[in-house]
Design a protein around this nucleic acid. Structure first.
Length: 473
RNA sequence: GGCGACGUGGCCGAGUGGCUAGGCAGAGGUCUGCAAAACCUCGUACAGCGGUUCGAUUCCGCUCGUCGCCUCCA
């Protein structure tokens, strides 16, 4: 399998540290607010990657942190007049709620920064002990110029950075580029005792400490949004490798930005769409299919038409499953089913193409195309079966099972509840009967009125050779 | 100023040194009382200018344009 490694700036053959197992660390949220749809893209993507790797036999450990202590949390808490700890706890819960409602499973480990203060302090101490960091005014700063590899991820050269505003009030740093790994806390701020006095974790050191704790040195993939490359991930590399002498994450994967009006969706721009707001208006799978339609590294425009298109994809899949059930239900086993060679071939080709696309830097857009190929083949066969009055249920079952399984890897689950009208309330079934009666009497106005009432109740009528069927919309 | 990415048919969006992406929308047809769903047919697009090549959308250079990052953004 090939995966694009930001560090190497090219696709590389994916080889894990320990054969058969993959350790993945994804930068999770800093819980100072509700997450928006842009934040959700990496979580969705890495869940897909984890599922795919599992499907080909890897034992995957996916770690996604929750950063529950940070300047912005304190800032927001002060603004709201509540304790930072309470605010962080509330937004942590909101994050978990939102992502669960969205259909994301929990990662294997979901560590919180405040529960790893000891590991963080130990890490800072090692940095100080080796001279890679120094204490100043109760804070601990990383000496950027002592770390030769600084800039290797982002390609930034320290001499050419804009660093006019890098020194904040109250900071006493040896160099403007140095960054805090431990911050002295002001009175009233959350703090933990440390060798340098009361303070709290600094520059995303929790990611460094926790990834090493749960995945060990030289773990396989560290990921997150593109915007984290610099300085976040660059600094993580510095913090980690300054202690170990090398070997932090082997591969770095970065997910492209979600944009609106071609501008990055971000809180500071103010063009965000909260995940929970999205879920009030759309099926979660619409967002997943929207994400899956583009390569994970590409920017993706969040717009009404693009979402409608994603919704159309979901419909096409649902209709296909409906068709399979419907055709199996309506045909008799007695007659000879149509030749199934093409569908048989399509099953093999789809599985093959899906694999090839996923193996090529997780090309979900290509994988989706493969699935639509299978949809077409299934529909074609269903047409023939319907005309012949007989279907090879085993063949259709195998085809739809494959479709279901591969969609599942992408994070889209479609069940009978999505389309089946069998469980429709009796009054709707009565309306269907009423419409049939009206149609027989050529009273089409009455028939259409019945159909409209059924539509208003969230069902659609589809007339088939064996009579009308209700489909849940 | 520095680093990086990108410009594909009406729209979205893969991909490739010569061979079908796919979806949505649209046109025509089949089916239907009309629809819906589905099927069939239909679009020769790769920002511009040079170069390499038998041949470039694909490789190289330049130009134009867009976007991200450059200290606390996913």
């Amino acid at each position: 399998m090939k995966i694009y490694n930001t560090l190497a700036r090219r696709k590389e053959e994916f080889a894990t540290r320990d054969p058969g197992t993959a350790g993945i660390y994804v930068c999770g949220p800093t819980v100072y607010g509700l997450i928006h749809v842009g934040n959700a893209r990496p979580y969705v993507f890495f869940a897909v990657l984890a599922r795919y790797l599992r499907s080909i036999g890897y034992d995957v450990k996916l770690v996604e942190n929750i950063t529950d202590i940070d300047d912005k949390i304190i800032e927001r808490a002060n603004h709201e007049g509540m304790a930072p700890g309470r605010l962080a706890a509330a937004f942590s819960r909101a994050y978990v709620d939102d992502t669960l409602k969205f259909g994301l499973e929990r990662p294997d480990v979901e560590p919180k920064a405040t529960e790893h203060i000891q590991e963080i302090i130990d890490h800072c101490r090692r940095l100080v002990d080796t001279g890679m960091a120094y204490e100043s005014g109760g804070s601990v700063y990383f000496r950027v110029d002592r770390f030769a590899g600084y800039g290797k991820l982002s390609g930034q050269k320290t001499g050419q950075m804009k660093h006019c505003e890098l020194v904040r009030e109250g900071e006493a740093k040896e160099s403007p580029l140095d960054f805090a790994v431990w911050k002295a806390s002001k009175p009233g701020e959350p703090s933990w005792e440390s060798p340098w006095g009361p303070g709290r974790p600094g520059w995303h050191i929790e990611c460094t400490a926790m990834s090493l704790k749960y995945l060990g040195q030289s773990f396989d993939i560290h990921g997150g949004g593109r915007d984290l490359i610099f300085p976040h991930h660059e600094n993580e590399i510095a913090q980690a490798e300054a202690v170990s002498g090398g070997g932090f994450a082997r591969g770095w994967m970065h997910v492209g930005m979600i944009t609106t009006k071609e501008e990055k969706m971000s809180k500071s721009v103010g063009n965000i769409f909260l995940l929970r707001e999205f879920l009030k208006q759309y099926d979660p799978r619409v967002l997943i299919l929207f994400f899956m339609g583009a390569h994970y590294r590409s920017p993706l425009e969040f717009s009404e038409v693009n979402l409608e298109e994603a919704a159309g994809r979901l419909e096409r899949f649902k209709n296909c499953f409906w068709k399979v059930d419907s055709v199996i239900g309506e045909t008799a086993a007695a007659a000879a089913p149509p030749e199934g060679r093409l569908l048989e071939d399509s099953i093999g080709l789809t599985a093959q193409q899906f694999e090839a696309e996923m193996q090529d830097d997780v090309n979900t857009a290509g994988a989706l195309a493969a699935l639509f190929g299978l949809v077409r083949s299934i529909n074609e066969y269903a047409e023939l079966a319907s005309a012949a009055g007989s279907a090879d249920a085993g063949l259709l079952g195998r085809a739809s099972d494959l479709l279901r399984r591969l969609l599942g890897i992408l994070g889209v689950e479609i069940t009978e509840a999505d389309y089946a009208g069998k469980a429709a309330p009796q009054e709707l079934l009565d309306l269907v009967a009423l419409r049939e009666q009206a149609r027989r009497e050529k009273d089409f106005a009455a028939a259409d009125a019945a159909r409209d009432r059924i539509a208003a109740a969230g069902y659609e009528i589809r007339d088939t050779p064996t009579g009308p069927k209700l489909v849940k919309k």
